[in-house]
Every structure is written in structure tokens, then in C-alpha cells.
Design a protein around this nucleic acid. Structure first.
Lengths: 348, 348
DNA sequence: GAAAGCTTCGAAAACCCTTTCGGTAAAGCT
DNA sequence: AGCTTTACCGAAAGGGTTTTCGAAGCTTTC
């Protein structure tokens, strides 16, 4: 049954695939006419068209996309060049891109460079010889990455990690604005003694989120309790940092964690110290990594970076560039979105 | 600099890409000779070859892979058809496949069907018109999935989720053997009162792991404390179940969790109940999902499914099938590997 | 010095499709 | 009846490459 409902409907036979000339021969017309018939062009009599379509069906003819591409110069493929080992960012971006292109219209070559420049170059060359219509480069962090240059014959869009060349087209999450969202949510929850525990200071994501937080607090006439605590993107650091923080500043009633991982550590320690989340201390974090955010006690309120939308946007930009639209160069920042859960608002 | 080191070395110019006939014209030879020269065939004089290669270099010629594929009937591409939304399994499998194919030799079309049969059919058709050389189907669970049938013109290998048709070629993790590994490790740690908390009973992974555990215990002349506890693949269930378990059977000194997520919940509750891991209760789980396993207190001993190797194996099987090797049909089970961390062996 | 062998190169077919353009036949018009 | 228009179809070129096979040109052999 599975045999029939799937393969049967594709109808492809094993062995060699049917070609257009096979169809033409069966239908008793020329190859040109067959082409017009299957492509729905008008210069063919209805009766003839039907004969061709019948022949195509019985042969289960599928036009060879390679030959097509060779003619019109478009392959309908894009390359997704990533260094994101974990697939943390690249999968939602891939899904967004598929959405934007329309399912089945465009196919995506996914290449993982594993942070290796040589491998990246290798993949890039392979993509170019395959004549992709465009390339989306997805970084592992939001730090700027080296540009691929402007000598490529296809448009390039940088997603998540922007290019270090301002004349490239880049799309990145707006971490500053994310910081603002986090702060405003805590303020709305009635918190005013807010501290921040975040990851490695070398990361632009850490710096930008901290900057956004501090700016938003200043706007509200407040300031952070202590300095932002930078170290690692780990639960361990979240635990250690929150212990230190609460020892030094017991009055803290809101903590902004630089990532969901850190927040998990914070939650653990705050509970261990006998304080309740969210009534004593509210916690908000970044990433909305479901597996972490929805399994904690309580579940995490967190800033989602809208990665899928980021992918859609990247695909849209690539598409526009292919169509010849003059791209808006520079970095386009995509705002995040607050997902509210139990770590800031008590559950009923 | 970035401009030079990457794009410069590709040497591709914007605008139209150079073709072989351009190269031939510049070098003053025929297209046929140019082809032989760039492909390193022997029927061309060294002097002529050098002239062609120089011309190719100055034009930064890249052979058009589409035209090539059209001739030899091989595209050097494979489709990876998945329903694994999270990318939890597909990414390591993709990486393994890339490894096996050799970097840059083969490119992978990644298609996400999102668990939707229609979308899957759509992607399948797209892959076939693109004339991929083979298809790897990656499922979301280890439960058998519907076969794509045998009428496809290219070889298909099922990875992670085997096909429900025993005449297909499938590669799946050996969860039974994984259960054995977990048991033997706990026994080696001196535990004998072992219980199991695992996920949804509908999942083959849950059943197989439990079966493996029980068989291994029986071999050692032991049996599980209580019945295997099935419910959900969540931390919440891990917490609830371990509370119930320890209330009913306080003598338990080893717990096998059906997943790292469940184990995280178990660790939490065991600690909350004032027992030490691993000295009072040792915990071992499945998956080796790094983000979960290495951030817990203590870190998790867990059975890694060797997904990357599974991807390599799938790629190898596809490759063999393309080469015309008669495939070994049925399900090939790939053993897992025990990763020992602090939840079973006290850290120094 | 002619036949035979080797090396080197190019013309052309092939891969599969799309598109242009010319040709045929039917239909419409005066 | 003679002309133009329309509708339909097919021959052929073109896209970029590989490969086969024949044609030179050269060297060796007797």
C-alpha cells in the first residue's frame, strides 16, 4: 500500500527515466509540440495537447531540470553555507527559507563548513559549479564574519552573522532591542532591582544584549544592579553567578540571563537559596530554545530571535537580488519577540 | 583582504561565467582539446595543455556541472528527505554523510517535509526532477515509516527510522543493545537494584530500550525494580516518576532514563530528596544530547546513538547502490556507545 | 622510399530540453 | 476564385560539456 500511494503516484519506473522525445514519439508529434503541450503553451490544439499529456502520464515523464536549467540559466537552487555545527540556528533559517521560496519551487544545498575556512572555500566552489542562483551564509554567532567578496557571480545574503563588509547584504537579530524587550517586561512585572548574567564578553550577542538592557533601564531612570556579569554561555556559570549575585545584592528582584542555558542555572540556584521564581525573583532570558525553556521549573520567559522569519527574510532578499532588484546594503536588524512563561508571571 | 582571500581565489568574475569555448578560443584550440586539457586526459601535448590551462586561469573558468551531469547521467547530488523538525538527528547524519562522500564531491539537498505526506511527495518529486543520484530518508523517531516504494529510479536508504518494507535498505540505532550497555555499566558500578523511567510507550525507541534492559538484567540473574515506567519524553515526567519510584522502592540504587531529558528531571528530584548522585543512586540515560548531558549536576552518563556514524553508513550504502552493488536489504542496526560522566562515576 | 605505427588535434554527435521561425492547411474575406 | 489571416505543427538552433572517431603529421621499420 505504501508502495502504491507514494511511489505509485510518482509513477517513476526503475531503469532509465523517460525523456520528452519518448513522449513525442508515443503521442505521434514532434518534440517541439510535446514541449509546448506539457508546458501549457497556447500554440497547440486541445486534442493534440491531450494526446501528449496522456503519453506523458503513461510514461510517467518528468522533465529533466538539468536540461531546463542549462537553457534558461536558472537552476532554482540556492546554497546554504553554514558553520553552525549544532544546527541550532540553521534549521529554523532553512525552514523559513523554504517557506519563502515556496515548497518545491526552490531546493536548498546545505553545506556545513564546520568553522574551517578551507572547507568553506571548497563548498563555495562546489556551489558555484552547481550554478546555484544565490547563496545564504549562516554564521554561528552574531559576530561579523569575513565577507565572501563581491566577485561572485551570484547574490549572497548573510544571515545571523552579518558580513564585516558594509556593502554586503546582511540580516541579523536585533539583540539591543531584545535587551529593551526584556527590561520593559521586567518593569511591567513591577521589578526595579534588575541584574544581568550573561556569556562570553567577546561575543557581540553578549555585548549588544547588555547594551540594550542598560539603555532601556536608563530610559526608565534606573540602572543595573552591579555590572553585567560576563563569563560563559553555560548553566554552570548561571549557577555560580547567581549565587555570587544574590550574596552581594540580596535585594535583586529581576535577573536577565544572556541565554536560556544560563537562565537554567540561575533558576536552579535561586531555588536552592530558598527564593521563589517568579514571586521573589523574576527571570527572563534569550533564545527561546524550546528544549531548555519549556522544561525548566518554572518555564522560562525568553526573547525569541525569530529565526524562522530571519530565514524567510534572507530568502526574500536573495530572491529580490536574483530578480535584479537593487539590494539594500548593510545590516538589517530583525526584532525579537517576547515569549512569556512562568519565570516572570506566576502560573494560575 | 577578506575580499581577496576568498572571492579572489575563486576568481569568479561578476557577470556571465566563462565557458569552455571561451577558453578554447583564447588558447587557440578546439573545444574538444580544451576539454581534454582541463580534465587531464592524456591525448594532448604538454605545450598545448599548458596553453589551455593558462587560458582557463585567466578567464577563471569553472566547468558547468549541469552540462556535465546532463551527459554522464550523474549529478553528484543526493537528497536528504527528513521530517526531523528540530534537526536533532538530521544534522549529525548530514555531517556523517558529507564525511563519507568526501568534502565537496557530493552535495546534499536538504528537504524538510515537516511530517506532512503531501509536502514529502512534493519534495520527492523535486528531487527526482533534479536528478539526484540517491535519497536518504531520515525519520524523527526509530519507528518504522512508510516506504517510498521500489518504483523510484534512484536508490533510497532509510536512516534512523527504518522503512516498514523489509526489502528496503534501512539503518537504525540498536536500542536493544543500548539497553544492554546501560545495564552492564550500572552492574559494573556495583548497582543491582535498577529501575527504568522512560518515554511514550508507543515509541519503538522506548520499547526497544526497555526490552534490552530487561534482557540484560535477566542474563545477569536480576530483574528490574518495578515495571518500566512509560509516559512522556520530558523533564517533568522524569521528576514526577522518580519521586514516585523512590517513594515506593527506596532501595533503588540505579536508574536508567529513557532519554537525557528524562534524566535531567530524575537528577533534580533525586537531589531534592536528599540523595546523592552517583553515590546513592547512579543514573544513566540515552541520546548524549550534549546541551543537556554536559550541563547537569552531575553530568550525565549516557548512551550515544552514533548518529554521525549512522549518516556515514547511510551515505556508504547509497554510494554502493549507485555503483551497482547489490544492497543488503532489511534493517541494519548500528550499536551505540557508552559515554561515562559523573552521574555514574564520582568525579575525582 | 613506402608501409606501418604513434601522437596530437578537431569535427560532430550526444545529453535533454526550450524557443524561434518558417511552413502548411484551413478558414475568412472580397 | 484569389487573397489574407489564423491556427497549428515541426525543423533546427542553442545551452555547455564529454566522447568517439577520423584526419593529419610525424617517426620508425624494413
Amino acid at each position: 500500500m505504501s508502495d502504491d500511494d507514494v511511489a505509485g503516484s510518482t509513477g517513476t519506473t526503475p531503469g532509465r527515466a523517460a525523456t520528452l522525445s519518448d513522449v513525442a514519439r508515443i503521442a505521434g508529434v514532434s518534440i517541439a509540440t510535446a514541449s509546448k503541450a506539457v508546458n501549457g503553451r497556447s500554440e497547440v490544439a486541445p486534442k493534440t495537447r491531450q494526446r501528449v499529456l496522456d503519453a506523458a502520464k503513461t510514461l510517467s515523464f518528468t522533465p529533466n531540470e538539468l536540461a531546463r536549467s542549462l537553457i534558461n540559466g536558472r537552476t532554482g537552487t540556492v546554497g546554504l553555507l553554514t558553520s553552525d555545527l549544532e544546527g541550532r540556528f540553521v534549521i529554523p533559517i532553512l525552514m523559513g527559507a523554504e517557506d519563502a521560496f515556496g515548497a518545491g519551487q526552490v531546493n536548498v544545498f546545505l553545506c556545513d563548513a564546520r568553522g574551517d575556512a578551507i572547507r568553506e572555500q571548497h563548498h563555495l566552489n562546489a556551489l558555484l559549479t552547481r550554478r546555484v542562483d544565490g547563496i545564504i551564509v549562516v554564521g554561528r554567532t552574531t559576530d561579523p564574519r569575513p565577507s565572501l567578496g563581491h566577485k561572485l557571480p551570484v547574490p549572497v545574503v548573510y544571515a545571523y552573522a552579518p558580513s564585516d563588509d558594509p556593502t554586503d547584504v546582511s540580516i541579523a537579530p536585533d539583540n539591543r532591542d531584545g535587551g529593551r524587550l526584556a527590561v520593559e517586561h521586567l518593569l511591567a512585572c513591577g521589578r526595579s532591582r534588575i541584574a544581568m548574567i550573561t556569556g562570553e564578553p567577546q561575543y557581540a550577542a553578549a555585548q549588544d544584549r547588555a547594551a540594550g538592557v542598560q539603555t532601556a533601564l536608563a530610559t526608565a531612570g534606573l540602572q543595573l544592579v552591579g555590572a553585567p556579569m560576563f563569563s560563559e554561555w553555560t548553566e554552570h556559570w548561571g549557577r555560580d553567578a547567581s549565587a555570587m549575585l544574590l550574596a552581594q545584592y540580596p535585594e535583586v528582584d529581576g535577573i536577565i540571563a544572556g541565554s536560556d542555558q544560563i537562565a537554567r542555572g540561575v533558576l536552579d540556584t535561586v531555588r536552592d537559596l530558598g527564593r521563589d521564581v517568579p514571586s521573589d525573583v523574576a527571570v527572563v532570558s534569550f533564545d527561546n530554545w524550546e528544549i531548555l525553556a519549556t522544561n525548566s521549573r518554572p518555564e522560562l520567559s525568553t526573547i525569541d530571535a525569530n529565526l524562522q522569519q530571519l530565514g524567510r527574510l534572507a530568502a526574500t532578499r536573495i530572491f529580490e537580488a536574483i530578480e535584479g532588484v537593487e539590494p539594500k546594503r548593510g545590516i538589517e536588524y530583525l526584532p525579537g519577540r517576547l515569549v512569556i512563561r512562568g519565570s516572570t508571571i506566576p502560573r494560575r
